[in-house]
Design a binder for these strands. Structure first.
Length: 445
DNA sequence: CGGCCTTTGAAGTAA
DNA sequence: TTACTTCAAAGGCCG
């Protein structure tokens, strides 16, 4: 029953949601909804933007509830807590999909009928049947493509149901893209990521609910489907490629030295408590991506001295600019909780408070090892007033930095963003905030 | 034309 | 159990 997380796993937000006899009203939202914008993320650490304009503080349009259309808000009111806690959601009265109901949104764009009904009343819980075409369309399943299983047999490609954030993106991408004059999804997604964190818990909860019901419907429609079906199809391709290439013998630091020899790990890996890149050979040269595909090194050959590592960390990925330990340093009181779309965002010219603190400034007593690590990544975070890497156009570590003399946007190899499509930070008021008064670090160029 | 980028969340996999 | 990886969407870009 819980195959697709209907009730959530024990400890998961959905679990508590489903197994809590109390209505959601007045209860804390799912755990992951109550975490700070830079929330604890085991897989990626503290996230910071790469696109310099993608900070919530830089967007004068309000964040949170005001972002939703009137129809969405109306629908939101339908998704009142007591309804959400209906013991038999599938038997709930038919309802209009909150986001489909709005012709202004693009959620479920595959469904051309703006008046289409919320899908979930179509199939009562516990009575799976063959999905109708409407339902397939609602879930965005065209089945036009096929995937090859491990056994080599071909199966229709049934996509994963969208999670809450994906639903949010789908509903808001067009709007954000238009407002910020952006076309590239990567840039838009960064903004959406910020906006997502700035949403109120209630707003997020609506998307979590829709996502949960989408998974529910997905499970009813495709009872045999498993995420595993789609898992690794792409990976197998890439592994095949890797095995033929130089990466075949690469090992992660963790695999090479194990957990109890973390001092042998390369520093970025040690900081993140996970491997962010493979190492080949003892000298650490030819380091490539940690995930095997998504990380991109920005220097041709890496020298494991601190400076280069810092450059590496700040350039390679937004998720690598801070170590996992930094999360743990964030006390509940000092950590930046979800900024309410209120005071902290009221002034678009000032970064929200959570951008104003260097995580290291929140440190608790450190072990010598911690101290080394802290010093290590304190350098790119040198000023407590300095926003995370990527938010300051003058930041030398910012892949999209602005040349102070020419005012031109420069980029590193890792950025494949065409600047013609990106807003000029200084001429695009919608999406940019003047740089902080803090003098920028001297450019190495 | 396939894959990357970029985001978060769900779920699979590996240690 | 924990940590890590993959895949969902999107569309411009690049080799």
């Amino acid at each position: 029953m819980d195959k697709v997380g209907l009730g959530g796993r024990p400890g998961s937000p959905l679990f508590s949601l489903y197994h809590n006899s109390q209505p959601y009203l007045g209860q804390p939202p799912p755990a992951h909804m109550g975490i700070s914008p830079y929330h604890l993320d085991s897989k990626a650490g503290l996230r910071s933007p790469v696109y310099p304009f993608a900070t919530s503080s830089q967007y004068p349009y309000s964040l949170g509830a005001a972002d939703l259309t009137a129809a969405q808000m109306a629908a939101a009111s339908w998704l009142s807590p007591n309804r959400l806690m209906h013991p038999h959601p599938g038997l709930s009265p038919p309802l209009t999909h909150p986001l489909v109901a709005s012709p202004k949104t693009e959620l479920y764009s595959t469904n051309n009928d703006p008046h289409s009904l919320f899908p979930y009343h179509l199939t009562p819980i516990g009575s799976p049947r063959h999905p109708s075409m409407d339902q397939k369309q609602v879930l965005g399943q065209s089945h036009k493509s096929t995937i090859e299983t491990k056994n080599g047999e071909k199966k229709p490609n049934i996509k994963k149901p969208l999670n809450a954030f994906m639903l949010y993106m789908k509903a808001n991408r067009a709007k954000v893209g238009a407002e910020c004059m952006l076309k590239e999804s990567a840039a838009i997604n960064q903004i959406l990521g910020r906006k997502w964190h700035a949403l109120s818990k209630d707003e997020q909860f609506k998307y979590y609910e829709i996502a949960r019901k989408e998974r529910q419907l997905h499970m009813q429609m495709y009872p045999e489907w498993n995420a595993r079906d789609n898992y690794g199809a792409m990976k197998r391709k890439k592994r095949k490629k890797e095995k033929t290439g130089d990466g075949a013998n690469m090992k992660k630091c963790r695999a090479r030295y194990s957990l109890d020899q973390q001092n042998q790990w390369c520093k970025p890996c040690r900081l993140k408590k996970k491997c962010i890149r493979y190492m080949e050979g003892e000298d650490g040269d030819d380091a490539v991506s940690g995930s095997g595909e998504s990380h991109e090194m920005t220097t041709d050959s890496l020298d494991y001295n601190d400076v280069d590592e810092l450059k590496d960390m700040s350039l390679s990925s937004p998720s690598t600019y801070l170590g996992h330990r930094d999360h743990q340093m964030l006390s509940p009181t000092s950590s930046p909780h979800l900024p309410s779309p209120g005071p902290s965002l009221a002034s678009p010219s000032e970064p929200p408070s959570f951008l104003m603190h260097s995580p290291s400034s929140l440190a608790s007593p450190l072990s010598p090892e911690d101290e080394r690590d802290q010093q290590f990544h304190q350098i790119p975070q040198q000023s407590p007033l300095r926003p995370p890497v990527g938010t300051n156009p003058h930041d030398i570590n910012n892949p999209l930095s602005v040349n102070q003399l020419t005012g031109q946007c420069t980029t590193t190899k890792s950025m494949k963003v065409s600047h013609s499509t990106l807003p000029d930070p200084y001429t695009t008021p919608l999406c940019w905030t003047p740089p902080l008064s803090q003098p920028p670090p001297p450019s190495p160029h």
